[in-house]
């Protein structure tokens, strides 16, 4: 297998073809919507996905800051240079598919480029082979990320209020209906990374952990009661799904990270069996 070609194809897949789980929930939301303006907005979103796929135009002009998750299984030996190779292939994929160079020096700003993806390499004992996920993260929603370090004695309701308020603050500008990623536990950086990872699982499937699943369902109901709706037009659907991931934490703390995705939640994975 030609890794470079596979990655370039993954970049195209992520940016041109909306994930099937996201599309499925958008279609459900469209059918259930009674508010005519909100229904129209959902119709635009579905038409947009069809045009993007058909014509190979990016779903959104904000083709994001590419976040790359490189999960390495127990049977794999890799050289550290593979990270740079993967990042280079992603940059090439962006350029060759006419996507937007949206990456700049944070203080000097200046001319934007395709180079500077964010990579996370994780060695995991519970998988075999290697999985590379390309996650173009748009900044209309990334700008609304939140972190709060709760007291360990905080009630679950306080955490729920914090998450709901984060969605409220995101408001119409961050392209609702959203998908809400929540990370609970670990350290501050870990909570935010978990929140981002939460967006990568199938959003139309229930969480296997019952406690987290109940929390997701309660949050989804409360968030949809906010009535922000598609493009901020009101209606039933402010979020398509809420996804929670947890990790062990310190006895003195309870970090909670919120990472919001716009309705154009895009990602593509490449599974490599033999490295």
């Amino acid at each position: 297998m030609n890794l470079r070609k596979e990655i370039e194809a993954g970049v195209a897949q992520a940016n041109f073809v909306l994930r099937s789980d996201v599309l499925c929930l958008l279609k459900k939301a469209y059918s259930a919507e009674k508010n005519s303006k909100a229904k129209k907005a959902l119709g635009w979103i579905l038409d947009n996905a069809a045009i993007a796929k058909e014509e190979k135009i990016a779903i959104c002009q904000d083709t994001g800051l590419p976040v790359i998750f490189i999960d390495v299984g127990k049977d794999v030996e890799i050289s550290s240079s593979i990270v740079k190779d993967i990042e280079d292939a992603v940059a090439c994929g962006y350029m060759n598919n006419y996507l937007r160079p949206s990456i700049v020096d944070p203080l000097r700003r200046g001319k934007s480029s395709y180079h500077g993806a964010i990579s996370h390499v994780h060695f995991l004992a519970n998988i075999k082979g290697m999985k590379i996920t390309i996650f173009p993260k748009g900044f209309g929603s990334e700008n609304k990320s939140r972190l709060k370090m709760f007291n360990p004695t905080a009630k679950v309701e306080e955490i729920e209020d914090f998450i709901i308020n984060s969605v409220k603050e995101a408001g119409p500008a961050s392209c609702p209906p959203f998908v809400i990623g929540v990370g609970v536990g670990g350290t501050s950086d870990c909570a935010l990374l978990l929140a981002k990872r939460a967006l990568l699982g199938k959003i139309d499937k229930p969480n296997k952990d019952k406690f987290s699943n109940d929390l997701e369902m309660r949050l989804l109901k409360k968030i949809n009661a906010l009535g922000i709706g598609p493009m901020g037009f009101g209606g039933r659907c402010t979020a398509l799904a809420v996804k929670v991931k947890t990790a062990s934490t310190h006895i003195a703390g309870l970090p909670v990270g919120v990472n919001i995705s716009c309705h154009a939640l895009r990602s593509a994975s490449i599974d490599i069996k033999n490295v």
Binding site: I45, I57, A58, C60, R100, P101, S102
Partner: peptide, 28 residues
Amino acid sequence: IAPSGCGALLAKKVLSKKLVGFKYLGPE
């Protein structure tokens, strides 16, 4: 407001595009 996150749909409504300033800003 224009349909947000619908850049492919909106591309179909554009007949022409011409650079008029600040070329060095690329997409901006």
